[in-house]
Simulated scan of single mutants.
Amino acid sequence: MDDDSATSDCTIALVDDDRNILASVSIALQSEGFRTRLYPDGESALKALIANPADLGIFDIKMPRMDGLELLKRLREKVQMPVIFLTSKDDEIDEELGFATGADDYVAKPFSQRLLIARVRAVLRRAENRRNAKSEDIVGGTAAIVRGRLEMDPARHRVHWDGKDVSLTVTEFMILEALAHRPDVVKSRNQLMDAAYQDDVYVDDRTIDSHIKRLRRKFRQVDPEFDAIDTLYGAGYRFTGN
């Protein structure tokens, strides 16, 4: 998906109780060719998006009536759509909760419109690649990765550990795939950023660290002894689960 196709026929749902943010972000997205739907709170957004999902959602976390975390949780019970969270600046709790709920990315306030649009394009591109992979014939699909107890099927976006399903976001999947592709080889944060954010989108070290934490937690839900992702302080991470 190139930049033109990433913006054509794509609708972005903006959910924020700050009407100034709704207006400014909507104008910026529309100037890039996106359609936008605006919602001032989570309750109104939930009803509308279940009935008519958007291609991507941008949700503020802290809102009255229904916050962004609850909105995403309840929305995912009915429909699947990628979501970017808007979080408080330097609020690691917001970030962790967002990824725990299944967000595909986050942008901390205050943010530049340019950064947000770049993240939107990156998430839409990853979602499109995932859909294309699922629709491929198995003969022409991407080969599965088997590393000891880990099994990854990129064509179907499936991950199993000891035969048990592990549900990952697109970004988490791409980071794990980069690590598992070459076991015992240390991947720097920059290399993992390149694997997960392939569009020269700026992310900081904390974003990758948060994804790694979420990966470990998800695997430990099916195996409390999971320790196949090592941290090498000052160097990066490696997968050791041969």
Rank of each mutant, 00 (worst) to 15 (best):
D162P: 00
D9V: 03
T87I: 00
N242P: 15
E43H: 13
L49I: 05
G33R: 11
E95Q: 14
D165C: 10
I138C: 03
Q113G: 01
E136I: 07
H211Q: 15
D105K: 02
T87C: 00
I50H: 01
R189I: 13
D90G: 11
V83Y: 12
L71S: 03
M66K: 15
L38M: 08
N190I: 04
F173S: 04
R130C: 03
G98I: 02
E92K: 10
Y39R: 11
S167M: 13
I58C: 09
L215K: 01
E225T: 12
V186S: 11
L115A: 07
I229K: 04
A195G: 11
I27A: 15
S188D: 03
A133E: 09
L56C: 13
D200H: 08
K134T: 08
M193R: 13
D2Q: 10
A28V: 08
A155D: 06
Q30M: 09
V203N: 13
K89F: 14
Q191W: 01
R147C: 15
L69M: 05
K109G: 07
E92N: 08
Q113W: 02
K62Q: 14
G234D: 08
K109R: 15
T36Y: 03
L22N: 00
Y233E: 05
L232W: 08
N20M: 11
N129R: 12
A178C: 12
D105C: 03
P154A: 07
P40L: 01
R35L: 13
K62D: 07
S31L: 15
A6C: 10
R156I: 05
A143E: 06
T142C: 03
Q113D: 05
D227N: 08
A196N: 10
M66A: 06
M193C: 08
D153F: 05
R19Q: 14
A108L: 04
P53H: 12
A103F: 02
E70V: 09
D55L: 01
P154T: 08
M66H: 07
A122H: 09
D227K: 05
R182Y: 12
P82L: 11
S8Q: 15
H160K: 14
K73G: 00
K89D: 08
S167C: 11
A6F: 00
A180E: 01
S31A: 15
Q30I: 00
L86Y: 11
S44Y: 05
T7I: 04
S188F: 09
D137T: 07
D17T: 02
V203H: 14
I21Q: 04
H160W: 06
L97Y: 09
S167E: 15
Y39E: 08
